[in-house]
Structures are given as C-alpha cells and as structure tokens.
Amino acid sequence: MDCARYLFLIAMLLVSGCEKISGLLGKEGTSVGLTTPVPGGEVDPTYGALVKRSADGVSFRRDLPFPSEIRGKVRIVEDRDHVRVVGQSAIGRETEVLNGKVETLVTYLKRSGEFLLTLDQAERLILDKDDEEVRDVVKPASSGAPEGKTLHYLLGEKGWYHKGARSETDFEVIVWADAVGDDLPNLMVEAGAHPRSQWFSSARSWRKDDRIVLTGNTIKLLEPFNVGGRVTLVFEAEEAVGGHPCGRFAVEGAYSVKNRPSLQGDRHDMEVTITGGHIWASLLYPVILYEDLEEIRTVTSRRGSMQKHLQGSVRLTRSRAWDPAQK
C-alpha cells in the first residue's frame, strides 16, 4: 500500500471539524484498538449486567437504544474447496479452480449523520509459511478492488451521499462510491453499523435446543438483502464474542439472494445451501457478531463489465469487532 497516497486521500476526504474522526482512524485504515474477536472467554461485566434472564431462559433485548457512534471492523474469510470459476470479460473467457483461504477486511466509523468506510484488504490470499499465516500482497484475488481507499458518507435530506473532495479525480474511489451508495443502509446493517430490521422477539425466552424457522423476509435476520428460502436456527448456549454476550445458534437450510452488494463494490446473485455451522447473535442489540458456516454456493459475481460464475464448497467465517462509544 502506498501510505503517502492513502494519507493524502484521507486529508482530501475529511472536512473541517472532522479531526476527531481522523484521530479515531489508525494506520492503514484500521480503527485504533480494534482486534478481530473470536467466540469464547469472559463477558465484559458492563455488558453482562444488561443480559435479560429468567427462570424460562435468556431473552434478546429490544429496548436498548442502538449506539449512535460505533467503531467497527469486519473480517471475512472464505476457505474455498475446489471452487470452479468461469470468468467472462472483454478480453475473453477464463476458467480456473480455487482452493485455499481468502480474506477481506474493512473498517468503519459510524456516528450520527456520518459514516467512513475503509477497504483494508480485498480477497487477499492467505498463505501458510513456516507455521504462520501471511497475506499475499502482490495481487488481490479480486482485481480492481479499491484497496486502501476510504469512503466518507454524510446523511442528507434525501439519504446518504458520498462526500468526495471538490476536485475528486481518483477513479477507483468514484466507482466504489457509486457501487456502494445505492445499498449503503443495508451494507451498514451487514457491517453492524445499523440494527437488523428482522430480529428475535424480546417476549421469547430461549433454552438449549429451542428452534426457529426463518422463511421469506424473516431470513433478513441473516441476510439483510433481497432474500428468500428456508433456514433453521437451533439455540445451543450463551457464549461471549469479544466480551459481548451472545446466543449461539446452529444453522442449516438454503436461501437465494439477488443482486447482493458487497462492501468492496461487487454484485452477486447467489444460491446457498448451509450444510452446518453457527452464528453468534448479540443478546443486547440486533447485531450478529460472528458467523462460521459450511456452505455450497452457486454465485454469479459482477464488477463493471467483468462477470464470474463460481460453484463449490466454501467455509465462511465472518467476524465483527464492534465497539460503541458508550456501553
């Protein structure tokens, strides 16, 4: 990454009065103090005191105001097992088979009327070298992805809009902002910056082996986009993620989603069968903090004039570091 170019871009994007935001964004776009969470460990006492329990089990709270200021990091790892890819572009048709892990990493800062999004890594190949994981920094697996760029959105009377510099000339930023802008509210939901519109009822208490079947619109609890299908969740236990109290659910089922955007600006039509795995849903707010799912996918992916068809088995791990300004 060209750090000088990146810092120059940040300076262009941030306007007078945003020094506080600039201070909260760390080197290479990573929010200061955020670490990728994993399930397990102790619950933060501040959060633990807010969990609602009764003799019937534990309930998901719906009464707490969603934080107005959040620093977040989303890490997505796809472990691909003989995924067949057919690519079509202006230069012709290409076929390949993908194996191994790729990582996408984004960080963000959301506060009242303002949202900054940085794409730190775009499908970087994770290599095993000498018992350590390293990232292939030579070429992102998703060509053309705007790595190291930051988008700055403001909330106006007609919704969210990208506040670029007056003399914006960075073509990658323009294209990325245009691709993300139409679906920014749903992408903010996916990242954890906005609450999910579909969520667990606060009137229901959960015990081990309780289940719920999601169909139609209710699958937006998992996928906040244009989705349909049937997915079953089975409650297993309470478990912390990064100190945050969560309900752990086993997941299986199938769904389809059309024209699904990604945080890096691609579009996907997807047919997904979840053969197993888990999600960790916050007991306090409508946010999923961790997903670990075994999937069989058929995907059509689009970026500009390029189109790819992917089919095969993927283990998806999606973690969200989630740090509100006030707990």
Rank of each mutant, 00 (worst) to 15 (best):
D2N: 14
A4M: 06
R5Y: 06
Y6G: 05
L9C: 06
A11S: 15
L14D: 03
V15A: 11
S22M: 08
V32P: 05
V32H: 13
T35L: 13
P37C: 03
P37R: 04
P39Y: 07
V43F: 02
V43W: 01
D44V: 10
R53W: 09
V58W: 04
L64P: 06
E69V: 12
R75N: 05
I76E: 01
D79T: 15
V85G: 03
V86T: 15
Q88S: 13
T95A: 15
L98D: 02
K101V: 10
V102K: 05
V106S: 00
Y108C: 04
Y108D: 01
L109S: 02
G113L: 07
G113K: 10
L116A: 11
E123D: 14
D128N: 13
E132G: 08
E133P: 07
R135P: 02
D136H: 11
V137E: 09
V137S: 09
P140M: 09
A141D: 00
S143T: 12
P146R: 01
E147C: 06
K149G: 01
T150V: 13
H152T: 07
Y153E: 03
E157K: 14
E157L: 14
S167H: 14
E172S: 14
A177L: 11
A179K: 03
A179Q: 09
G181V: 04
E190H: 05
E190P: 01
E190K: 03
A191Y: 01
W199V: 03
W199G: 02
S202M: 04
W206E: 02
R211N: 12
I212P: 00
L214Q: 01
L214Y: 08
T215V: 15
G216D: 13
G216Q: 07
F225I: 09
N226G: 01
R230I: 12
L233Y: 04
F235S: 05
V241S: 02
V241T: 02
G243P: 06
C246I: 01
G247F: 00
R248I: 12
V257T: 14
N259P: 00
S262K: 00
S262H: 04
Q264T: 11
G265K: 02
D269L: 11
D269Q: 06
E271A: 15
E271H: 13
T273L: 14
G277M: 05
L284A: 03
P286T: 05
I288M: 05
L289D: 03
D292R: 09
R297P: 05
R302Y: 08
R303L: 15
R303Y: 14
R303S: 12
M306Q: 08
M306H: 10
L310P: 02
R315D: 04
T317N: 06
R318P: 00
S319N: 07
S319K: 04
R320G: 00
A321D: 00
D323C: 09
K327T: 14
K327V: 12
K327W: 09
